[in-house]
Design a protein around this nucleic acid. Structure first.
Lengths: 248, 248
DNA sequence: GAGTGGTCTAGACCACTGG
DNA sequence: CAGTGGTCTAGACCACTCC
Protein backbone atom coordinates (compact mmCIF):
# COMPACT_ATOMS: atom_id res chain seq x y z
CA UNK A 1 0.00 0.00 0.00
CA UNK A 2 2.07 2.90 -1.19
CA UNK A 3 1.74 6.56 -1.85
CA UNK A 4 2.05 5.99 -5.57
CA UNK A 5 -1.10 3.91 -5.87
CA UNK A 6 -3.32 4.59 -2.87
CA UNK A 7 -2.62 7.36 -0.44
CA UNK A 8 -3.21 6.68 3.26
CA UNK A 9 -6.50 7.96 4.64
CA UNK A 10 -6.43 11.35 6.30
CA UNK A 11 -8.06 12.08 9.62
CA UNK A 12 -10.30 15.06 8.91
CA UNK A 13 -11.38 15.37 12.53
CA UNK A 14 -7.84 15.48 13.87
CA UNK A 15 -6.34 18.65 15.28
CA UNK A 16 -3.36 17.93 13.04
CA UNK A 17 -3.89 20.02 9.90
CA UNK A 18 -4.48 18.16 6.64
CA UNK A 19 -1.35 19.57 5.02
CA UNK A 20 0.74 18.30 7.93
CA UNK A 21 -0.74 14.82 7.51
CA UNK A 22 0.07 14.96 3.79
CA UNK A 23 3.60 16.03 4.66
CA UNK A 24 3.99 13.13 7.03
CA UNK A 25 2.65 10.66 4.46
CA UNK A 26 5.04 11.84 1.75
CA UNK A 27 7.89 11.95 4.27
CA UNK A 28 7.22 8.31 5.18
CA UNK A 29 7.12 7.27 1.53
CA UNK A 30 10.56 8.81 1.15
CA UNK A 31 12.03 7.38 4.31
CA UNK A 32 10.65 3.92 3.66
CA UNK A 33 12.43 3.97 0.32
CA UNK A 34 9.22 3.71 -1.66
CA UNK A 35 10.32 6.76 -3.63
CA UNK A 36 14.06 6.90 -4.22
CA UNK A 37 16.15 10.08 -4.39
CA UNK A 38 15.92 11.86 -7.76
CA UNK A 39 12.69 10.04 -8.63
CA UNK A 40 9.61 12.05 -9.40
CA UNK A 41 6.75 12.06 -6.94
CA UNK A 42 3.19 12.21 -8.31
CA UNK A 43 2.21 15.59 -9.70
CA UNK A 44 0.36 18.07 -7.52
CA UNK A 45 -2.87 17.34 -9.36
CA UNK A 46 -2.41 13.60 -8.95
CA UNK A 47 -1.69 13.95 -5.24
CA UNK A 48 -4.73 16.18 -4.94
CA UNK A 49 -6.84 13.34 -6.33
CA UNK A 50 -5.09 10.59 -4.36
CA UNK A 51 -5.54 12.32 -1.00
CA UNK A 52 -8.88 13.84 -1.87
CA UNK A 53 -7.82 17.37 -0.94
CA UNK A 54 -7.43 20.51 -2.97
CA UNK A 55 -4.26 21.25 -4.88
CA UNK A 56 -3.53 24.29 -2.70
CA UNK A 57 -3.41 22.06 0.36
CA UNK A 58 -1.02 19.68 -1.39
CA UNK A 59 1.12 22.65 -2.33
CA UNK A 60 1.29 23.84 1.26
CA UNK A 61 2.75 20.46 2.20
CA UNK A 62 5.17 20.41 -0.74
CA UNK A 63 6.38 23.99 -0.28
CA UNK A 64 7.30 23.26 3.33
CA UNK A 65 9.12 20.07 2.38
CA UNK A 66 11.02 21.96 -0.31
CA UNK A 67 12.01 24.54 2.28
CA UNK A 68 13.25 21.73 4.49
CA UNK A 69 15.32 20.32 1.67
CA UNK A 70 13.65 16.95 1.28
CA UNK A 71 12.12 17.75 -2.13
CA UNK A 72 13.08 19.94 -5.06
CA UNK A 73 11.18 21.03 -8.15
CA UNK A 74 11.97 21.43 -11.81
CA UNK A 75 9.47 23.83 -13.24
CA UNK A 76 7.45 22.31 -16.01
CA UNK A 77 8.74 18.82 -15.20
CA UNK A 78 7.82 17.74 -11.72
CA UNK A 79 8.72 17.42 -8.08
CA UNK A 80 11.63 15.19 -7.09
CA UNK A 81 13.01 13.61 -3.95
CA UNK A 82 16.26 15.20 -2.78
CA UNK A 83 19.19 13.17 -1.61
CA UNK A 84 20.35 14.64 1.62
CA UNK A 85 19.08 12.65 4.53
CA UNK A 86 22.23 13.85 6.21
CA UNK A 87 21.26 16.32 8.82
CA UNK A 88 18.69 18.30 10.67
CA UNK A 89 16.36 20.25 8.40
CA UNK A 90 18.01 23.59 9.02
CA UNK A 91 20.39 25.19 11.42
CA UNK A 92 18.40 24.97 14.61
CA UNK A 93 18.85 26.86 17.83
CA UNK A 94 19.80 24.36 20.50
CA UNK A 95 20.68 24.54 24.16
CA UNK A 96 23.75 22.81 25.51
CA UNK A 97 21.46 20.14 26.94
CA UNK A 98 19.87 19.42 23.54
CA UNK A 99 23.19 19.63 21.74
CA UNK A 100 24.76 16.97 23.95
CA UNK A 101 21.70 14.74 23.82
CA UNK A 102 21.83 14.85 20.01
CA UNK A 103 25.42 13.64 20.17
CA UNK A 104 24.52 10.81 22.49
CA UNK A 105 26.46 12.29 25.39
CA UNK A 106 25.24 12.77 28.94
CA UNK A 107 25.29 16.50 29.73
CA UNK A 108 25.90 17.85 33.21
CA UNK A 109 26.78 21.18 34.74
CA UNK A 110 28.57 22.65 37.70
CA UNK A 111 27.55 26.09 38.82
CA UNK A 112 30.64 28.28 39.04
CA UNK A 113 28.81 31.43 40.03
CA UNK A 114 25.48 33.22 39.81
CA UNK A 115 24.94 36.83 40.73
CA UNK A 116 23.34 40.15 39.86
CA UNK A 117 25.34 43.01 38.43
CA UNK A 118 24.59 46.40 36.89
CA UNK A 119 24.54 46.15 33.11
CA UNK A 120 27.64 47.55 31.42
CA UNK A 121 26.81 50.06 28.75
CA UNK A 122 27.49 48.02 25.58
CA UNK A 123 25.62 45.01 26.89
CA UNK A 124 22.72 47.19 28.04
CA UNK A 125 22.49 48.63 24.57
CA UNK A 126 22.49 45.21 22.92
CA UNK A 127 19.79 43.98 25.29
CA UNK A 128 17.72 47.18 24.96
CA UNK A 129 17.70 47.87 28.69
CA UNK A 130 18.89 50.92 30.65
CA UNK A 131 22.60 50.94 31.42
CA UNK A 132 23.14 49.94 35.03
CA UNK A 133 19.90 47.99 35.36
CA UNK A 134 20.05 44.56 36.95
CA UNK A 135 21.60 41.76 34.97
CA UNK A 136 21.64 38.11 35.98
CA UNK A 137 24.97 36.41 35.37
CA UNK A 138 25.21 32.64 35.45
CA UNK A 139 28.54 30.94 34.99
CA UNK A 140 28.61 27.21 34.50
CA UNK A 141 31.12 24.50 33.78
CA UNK A 142 29.69 22.17 31.17
CA UNK A 143 30.52 18.48 31.10
CA UNK A 144 29.81 15.72 28.60
CA UNK A 145 29.88 12.19 29.98
CA UNK A 146 31.64 13.67 32.99
CA UNK A 147 34.46 15.23 30.95
CA UNK A 148 35.19 18.94 31.17
CA UNK A 149 34.00 20.49 27.94
CA UNK A 150 33.19 24.18 28.19
CA UNK A 151 32.64 27.23 30.32
CA UNK A 152 29.49 29.15 29.61
CA UNK A 153 28.53 32.55 30.99
CA UNK A 154 24.94 33.71 30.41
CA UNK A 155 23.66 37.25 30.92
CA UNK A 156 19.94 38.01 31.15
CA UNK A 157 17.98 41.13 32.11
CA UNK A 158 16.71 40.37 35.62
CA UNK A 159 13.38 42.00 34.76
CA UNK A 160 12.67 39.21 32.28
CA UNK A 161 13.28 36.42 34.79
CA UNK A 162 12.90 37.74 38.35
CA UNK A 163 14.04 35.25 40.95
CA UNK A 164 15.67 32.93 38.44
CA UNK A 165 18.68 32.53 40.73
CA UNK A 166 16.55 30.67 43.27
CA UNK A 167 16.14 27.71 40.94
CA UNK A 168 18.50 24.79 40.68
CA UNK A 169 20.63 25.74 37.70
CA UNK A 170 22.84 22.66 37.85
CA UNK A 171 20.08 20.14 37.30
CA UNK A 172 17.78 22.01 34.94
CA UNK A 173 18.17 23.42 31.46
CA UNK A 174 18.14 27.20 31.63
CA UNK A 175 16.17 27.43 28.38
CA UNK A 176 13.47 25.10 29.65
CA UNK A 177 13.29 27.09 32.87
CA UNK A 178 12.89 30.36 30.96
CA UNK A 179 10.23 28.86 28.74
CA UNK A 180 8.22 27.10 31.43
CA UNK A 181 8.46 29.58 34.33
CA UNK A 182 8.89 32.91 32.57
CA UNK A 183 7.14 32.34 29.22
CA UNK A 184 10.41 33.40 27.60
CA UNK A 185 10.85 31.33 24.47
CA UNK A 186 14.15 31.89 22.72
CA UNK A 187 13.93 31.45 18.97
CA UNK A 188 16.82 33.13 17.16
CA UNK A 189 20.49 33.59 17.82
CA UNK A 190 23.40 35.39 16.26
CA UNK A 191 26.78 33.89 17.02
CA UNK A 192 30.36 34.78 16.38
CA UNK A 193 32.85 31.96 16.51
CA UNK A 194 36.60 32.17 16.73
CA UNK A 195 39.63 30.10 17.57
CA UNK A 196 41.62 31.55 20.46
CA UNK A 197 43.89 30.66 23.31
CA UNK A 198 42.21 30.13 26.68
CA UNK A 199 42.71 32.54 29.52
CA UNK A 200 44.69 31.20 32.45
CA UNK A 201 41.49 30.82 34.43
CA UNK A 202 39.71 28.94 31.64
CA UNK A 203 42.67 26.63 31.25
CA UNK A 204 42.56 25.74 34.94
CA UNK A 205 38.79 25.32 35.16
CA UNK A 206 38.72 23.13 32.05
CA UNK A 207 41.84 21.23 33.19
CA UNK A 208 43.36 21.75 29.77
CA UNK A 209 46.85 20.69 28.80
CA UNK A 210 49.01 23.61 27.67
CA UNK A 211 48.98 24.56 23.99
CA UNK A 212 45.38 23.52 23.32
CA UNK A 213 43.17 26.29 21.88
CA UNK A 214 39.50 26.96 22.62
CA UNK A 215 36.53 27.61 20.39
CA UNK A 216 35.15 30.89 21.67
CA UNK A 217 31.51 31.63 20.93
CA UNK A 218 29.59 34.84 21.60
CA UNK A 219 25.89 34.51 21.22
CA UNK A 220 22.99 36.96 21.31
CA UNK A 221 19.69 35.15 21.67
CA UNK A 222 16.29 36.64 20.93
CA UNK A 223 12.63 35.68 21.16
CA UNK A 224 10.21 35.38 18.28
CA UNK A 225 9.56 39.09 18.35
CA UNK A 226 13.24 39.69 17.74
CA UNK A 227 13.99 41.20 21.15
CA UNK A 228 17.48 40.30 22.30
CA UNK A 229 17.06 38.57 25.66
CA UNK A 230 20.36 36.87 26.40
CA UNK A 231 24.07 37.20 25.88
CA UNK A 232 26.25 34.13 26.27
CA UNK A 233 30.01 33.77 26.20
CA UNK A 234 31.31 30.24 25.80
CA UNK A 235 34.71 28.63 25.58
CA UNK A 236 34.82 25.03 24.36
CA UNK A 237 37.90 22.84 24.59
CA UNK A 238 39.29 22.68 21.05
CA UNK A 239 40.42 19.10 21.53
CA UNK A 240 36.98 17.84 22.53
CA UNK A 241 34.40 19.83 20.63
CA UNK A 242 33.37 20.25 17.02
CA UNK A 243 30.59 22.57 16.01
CA UNK A 244 28.22 21.44 13.25
CA UNK A 245 26.58 24.02 11.03
CA UNK A 246 24.26 23.63 8.07
CA UNK A 247 24.06 26.36 5.47
CA UNK A 248 21.64 27.15 2.74
CA UNK B 1 1.43 57.97 1.22
CA UNK B 2 1.86 55.05 3.51
CA UNK B 3 0.94 51.44 3.66
CA UNK B 4 -1.50 52.09 6.46
CA UNK B 5 -3.78 54.36 4.47
CA UNK B 6 -3.20 53.72 0.78
CA UNK B 7 -1.13 50.86 -0.49
CA UNK B 8 1.16 51.48 -3.46
CA UNK B 9 -0.20 50.38 -6.81
CA UNK B 10 0.83 46.95 -8.00
CA UNK B 11 2.04 46.21 -11.49
CA UNK B 12 -0.19 43.38 -12.69
CA UNK B 13 1.64 43.05 -15.97
CA UNK B 14 5.05 42.71 -14.38
CA UNK B 15 6.93 39.42 -14.36
CA UNK B 16 7.44 40.04 -10.64
CA UNK B 17 4.69 38.08 -8.88
CA UNK B 18 2.05 40.04 -7.00
CA UNK B 19 2.96 38.48 -3.66
CA UNK B 20 6.58 39.55 -4.15
CA UNK B 21 5.45 43.12 -4.83
CA UNK B 22 3.34 43.03 -1.68
CA UNK B 23 6.33 41.71 0.24
CA UNK B 24 8.48 44.54 -1.05
CA UNK B 25 5.85 47.15 -0.17
CA UNK B 26 5.49 45.89 3.39
CA UNK B 27 9.27 45.57 3.68
CA UNK B 28 9.67 49.21 2.67
CA UNK B 29 7.03 50.32 5.16
CA UNK B 30 9.05 48.59 7.86
CA UNK B 31 12.44 49.88 6.76
CA UNK B 32 11.19 53.43 6.32
CA UNK B 33 10.04 53.33 9.92
CA UNK B 34 6.40 53.83 8.98
CA UNK B 35 5.59 50.77 11.06
CA UNK B 36 7.73 50.44 14.15
CA UNK B 37 8.87 47.15 15.70
CA UNK B 38 6.19 45.46 17.82
CA UNK B 39 3.43 47.49 16.17
CA UNK B 40 0.63 45.70 14.44
CA UNK B 41 0.41 45.79 10.67
CA UNK B 42 -3.06 45.89 9.06
CA UNK B 43 -4.93 42.61 9.24
CA UNK B 44 -4.78 40.19 6.33
CA UNK B 45 -8.30 41.14 5.31
CA UNK B 46 -7.47 44.85 5.43
CA UNK B 47 -4.31 44.35 3.37
CA UNK B 48 -6.35 42.31 0.94
CA UNK B 49 -8.65 45.31 0.44
CA UNK B 50 -5.84 47.90 0.40
CA UNK B 51 -3.85 46.11 -2.29
CA UNK B 52 -6.87 44.81 -4.13
CA UNK B 53 -5.66 41.21 -4.11
CA UNK B 54 -7.04 38.09 -2.49
CA UNK B 55 -6.26 37.21 1.07
CA UNK B 56 -4.36 34.09 0.02
CA UNK B 57 -1.96 36.24 -1.97
CA UNK B 58 -1.43 38.52 1.04
CA UNK B 59 -0.80 35.44 3.15
CA UNK B 60 1.82 34.16 0.75
CA UNK B 61 3.73 37.41 1.24
CA UNK B 62 3.29 37.40 5.00
CA UNK B 63 4.24 33.74 5.46
CA UNK B 64 7.51 34.33 3.64
CA UNK B 65 8.28 37.43 5.70
CA UNK B 66 7.55 35.49 8.88
CA UNK B 67 9.94 32.79 7.72
CA UNK B 68 12.56 35.47 7.16
CA UNK B 69 12.04 36.80 10.65
CA UNK B 70 10.81 40.29 9.81
CA UNK B 71 7.25 39.67 11.04
CA UNK B 72 5.68 37.50 13.70
CA UNK B 73 2.07 36.59 14.46
CA UNK B 74 -0.03 36.24 17.56
CA UNK B 75 -2.95 34.05 16.71
CA UNK B 76 -6.24 35.76 17.24
CA UNK B 77 -4.54 39.13 17.69
CA UNK B 78 -2.63 40.20 14.65
CA UNK B 79 0.63 40.34 12.75
CA UNK B 80 3.49 42.36 14.19
CA UNK B 81 6.79 43.78 13.05
CA UNK B 82 9.78 41.97 14.54
CA UNK B 83 12.79 43.79 15.88
CA UNK B 84 15.80 42.12 14.43
CA UNK B 85 17.18 44.07 11.55
CA UNK B 86 20.42 42.56 12.76
CA UNK B 87 21.48 40.12 10.16
CA UNK B 88 20.99 38.28 6.95
CA UNK B 89 17.59 36.57 6.71
CA UNK B 90 18.96 33.14 7.44
CA UNK B 91 22.23 31.35 7.50
CA UNK B 92 23.22 31.60 3.88
CA UNK B 93 25.76 29.66 1.92
CA UNK B 94 28.48 32.04 0.81
CA UNK B 95 31.71 31.73 -1.07
CA UNK B 96 34.91 33.24 0.25
CA UNK B 97 34.51 36.01 -2.31
CA UNK B 98 31.00 36.90 -1.11
CA UNK B 99 31.98 36.52 2.53
CA UNK B 100 34.80 39.05 2.22
CA UNK B 101 32.73 41.47 0.15
CA UNK B 102 30.06 41.42 2.86
CA UNK B 103 32.71 42.41 5.39
CA UNK B 104 33.93 45.25 3.22
CA UNK B 105 37.27 43.58 2.57
CA UNK B 106 38.97 43.08 -0.78
CA UNK B 107 39.37 39.36 -1.40
CA UNK B 108 42.23 37.90 -3.38
CA UNK B 109 43.77 34.48 -3.89
CA UNK B 110 47.07 32.84 -4.67
CA UNK B 111 46.98 29.45 -6.26
CA UNK B 112 49.14 27.07 -4.23
CA UNK B 113 48.41 24.01 -6.32
CA UNK B 114 45.87 22.42 -8.64
CA UNK B 115 45.94 18.81 -9.73
CA UNK B 116 44.02 15.62 -10.38
CA UNK B 117 44.18 12.68 -8.02
CA UNK B 118 42.36 9.38 -7.59
CA UNK B 119 39.59 9.74 -5.01
CA UNK B 120 40.43 8.19 -1.66
CA UNK B 121 37.77 5.79 -0.48
CA UNK B 122 36.06 7.86 2.24
CA UNK B 123 35.90 10.95 0.08
CA UNK B 124 34.63 8.93 -2.88
CA UNK B 125 31.86 7.58 -0.70
CA UNK B 126 30.87 11.04 0.53
CA UNK B 127 30.80 12.37 -3.02
CA UNK B 128 28.95 9.30 -4.37
CA UNK B 129 31.60 8.53 -6.97
CA UNK B 130 33.65 5.36 -7.54
CA UNK B 131 36.77 5.09 -5.39
CA UNK B 132 39.79 5.98 -7.44
CA UNK B 133 37.92 8.12 -9.98
CA UNK B 134 39.38 11.48 -10.87
CA UNK B 135 39.17 14.23 -8.31
CA UNK B 136 40.16 17.85 -8.89
CA UNK B 137 42.10 19.35 -6.00
CA UNK B 138 42.54 23.12 -5.80
CA UNK B 139 44.62 24.62 -3.03
CA UNK B 140 44.51 28.35 -2.56
CA UNK B 141 45.88 30.93 -0.16
CA UNK B 142 43.13 33.40 0.67
CA UNK B 143 43.85 37.05 1.41
CA UNK B 144 41.71 39.88 2.69
CA UNK B 145 42.95 43.38 1.88
CA UNK B 146 46.26 41.74 1.04
CA UNK B 147 46.64 40.07 4.43
CA UNK B 148 47.08 36.33 4.71
CA UNK B 149 43.85 34.91 6.05
CA UNK B 150 43.27 31.28 5.18
CA UNK B 151 44.26 28.20 3.26
CA UNK B 152 41.46 26.49 1.42
CA UNK B 153 41.60 23.11 -0.32
CA UNK B 154 38.65 22.18 -2.54
CA UNK B 155 37.93 18.71 -3.91
CA UNK B 156 35.50 18.18 -6.79
CA UNK B 157 34.66 15.15 -8.94
CA UNK B 158 36.36 15.89 -12.25
CA UNK B 159 33.37 14.48 -14.12
CA UNK B 160 31.24 17.38 -12.86
CA UNK B 161 33.64 20.06 -14.08
CA UNK B 162 35.88 18.67 -16.84
CA UNK B 163 38.71 21.03 -17.75
CA UNK B 164 38.15 23.31 -14.78
CA UNK B 165 41.88 23.49 -14.16
CA UNK B 166 42.37 25.41 -17.42
CA UNK B 167 40.56 28.44 -16.01
CA UNK B 168 42.17 31.22 -14.06
CA UNK B 169 41.44 30.20 -10.48
CA UNK B 170 43.23 33.16 -8.91
CA UNK B 171 41.07 35.84 -10.45
CA UNK B 172 37.69 34.17 -10.53
CA UNK B 173 35.35 32.83 -7.90
CA UNK B 174 35.23 29.05 -8.16
CA UNK B 175 31.53 29.02 -7.34
CA UNK B 176 30.72 31.48 -10.12
CA UNK B 177 32.80 29.41 -12.52
CA UNK B 178 30.96 26.23 -11.57
CA UNK B 179 27.60 27.93 -11.92
CA UNK B 180 28.26 29.73 -15.19
CA UNK B 181 30.38 27.17 -17.07
CA UNK B 182 29.22 23.87 -15.64
CA UNK B 183 25.63 24.63 -14.55
CA UNK B 184 26.64 23.42 -11.11
CA UNK B 185 24.81 25.52 -8.59
CA UNK B 186 25.78 24.82 -5.01
CA UNK B 187 22.93 25.36 -2.57
CA UNK B 188 23.52 23.56 0.73
CA UNK B 189 26.49 22.85 2.92
CA UNK B 190 27.27 20.93 6.06
CA UNK B 191 30.23 22.21 8.02
CA UNK B 192 32.15 21.12 11.04
CA UNK B 193 34.13 23.78 12.82
CA UNK B 194 36.87 23.35 15.38
CA UNK B 195 39.68 25.22 17.04
CA UNK B 196 43.05 23.61 16.45
CA UNK B 197 46.73 24.29 16.15
CA UNK B 198 48.04 24.83 12.63
CA UNK B 199 50.30 22.32 10.97
CA UNK B 200 53.86 23.45 10.41
CA UNK B 201 53.10 23.99 6.73
CA UNK B 202 49.98 26.05 7.43
CA UNK B 203 51.87 28.19 9.91
CA UNK B 204 54.51 28.99 7.30
CA UNK B 205 52.11 29.64 4.43
CA UNK B 206 49.94 31.90 6.57
CA UNK B 207 53.00 33.57 8.09
CA UNK B 208 51.55 33.06 11.54
CA UNK B 209 53.30 33.92 14.76
CA UNK B 210 53.81 30.92 17.04
CA UNK B 211 51.07 30.07 19.53
CA UNK B 212 48.18 31.33 17.40
CA UNK B 213 45.45 28.73 16.73
CA UNK B 214 43.43 28.24 13.54
CA UNK B 215 39.73 27.83 12.91
CA UNK B 216 39.52 24.59 10.96
CA UNK B 217 36.43 24.10 8.81
CA UNK B 218 35.41 20.99 6.89
CA UNK B 219 32.60 21.53 4.47
CA UNK B 220 30.54 19.26 2.24
CA UNK B 221 28.63 21.28 -0.34
CA UNK B 222 25.67 20.01 -2.34
CA UNK B 223 23.37 21.17 -5.11
CA UNK B 224 19.62 21.68 -4.87
CA UNK B 225 19.02 18.01 -5.49
CA UNK B 226 21.08 17.21 -2.41
CA UNK B 227 23.98 15.58 -4.28
CA UNK B 228 27.26 16.24 -2.52
CA UNK B 229 29.50 17.91 -5.09
CA UNK B 230 32.42 19.39 -3.18
CA UNK B 231 34.57 18.84 -0.13
CA UNK B 232 36.53 21.78 1.27
CA UNK B 233 39.10 21.91 4.03
CA UNK B 234 39.90 25.37 5.35
CA UNK B 235 42.20 26.77 7.99
CA UNK B 236 41.57 30.39 9.00
CA UNK B 237 43.99 32.40 11.13
CA UNK B 238 42.41 32.57 14.58
CA UNK B 239 43.73 36.07 15.16
CA UNK B 240 42.16 37.48 12.00
CA UNK B 241 38.90 35.70 11.40
CA UNK B 242 35.55 35.44 13.14
CA UNK B 243 32.78 33.29 11.77
CA UNK B 244 29.23 34.64 11.99
CA UNK B 245 26.35 32.21 12.27
CA UNK B 246 22.63 32.80 12.64
CA UNK B 247 20.47 30.16 14.22
CA UNK B 248 16.78 29.56 14.36
C1' DG C 1 -19.84 39.03 19.39
C1' DA C 2 -16.52 40.99 16.39
C1' DG C 3 -12.05 40.57 14.70
C1' DT C 4 -7.85 37.87 14.07
C1' DG C 5 -4.69 34.41 12.05
C1' DG C 6 -4.79 29.29 10.47
C1' DT C 7 -6.63 26.21 7.35
C1' DC C 8 -9.08 24.61 3.24
C1' DT C 9 -11.72 24.51 -1.27
C1' DA C 10 -12.55 24.43 -6.38
C1' DG C 11 -11.72 26.61 -9.66
C1' DA C 12 -8.38 29.69 -13.07
C1' DC C 13 -4.40 31.47 -16.14
C1' DC C 14 0.60 31.53 -17.00
C1' DA C 15 5.37 29.93 -18.52
C1' DC C 16 7.83 26.16 -19.09
C1' DT C 17 9.18 21.26 -20.37
C1' DG C 18 8.69 17.17 -23.30
C1' DG C 19 7.31 14.35 -27.24
C1' DC D 1 0.30 19.26 -27.92
C1' DA D 2 -0.75 17.70 -23.04
C1' DG D 3 1.31 17.92 -18.53
C1' DT D 4 3.92 20.37 -15.00
C1' DG D 5 4.87 23.68 -11.31
C1' DG D 6 3.97 28.82 -10.14
C1' DT D 7 0.63 32.11 -9.21
C1' DC D 8 -3.93 33.95 -8.11
C1' DT D 9 -9.01 34.31 -6.89
C1' DA D 10 -13.27 34.60 -3.88
C1' DG D 11 -15.15 32.47 -1.04
C1' DA D 12 -15.51 29.24 3.62
C1' DC D 13 -15.04 27.36 8.60
C1' DC D 14 -12.23 27.04 12.80
C1' DA D 15 -9.92 28.38 17.34
C1' DC D 16 -8.40 32.08 19.53
C1' DT D 17 -8.37 36.88 21.85
C1' DC D 18 -10.47 40.87 23.60
C1' DC D 19 -14.36 43.43 25.08
Amino acid sequence: MGLLEAAPALDRGSSVPIFAQVKAAIGEAIESGEIQPHRRIPSERELSGLFGVSRMTIRQALVEMIGEGSLYTRSGKGTYVAERKIAQPLQRLTSFTQDMAARGLRPSSRLLGADLLPAPIELAHALSIPAGSELVRIRRLRLADGQHLAIETSHLPHARCPGVLQHDLEQHSLYELLRDRYALELAFAKQTIEAANPTEEERELLEMPPGVPVLRIHRFTSNRAGEVCEFVQSAYRGDRYQLNVNLE
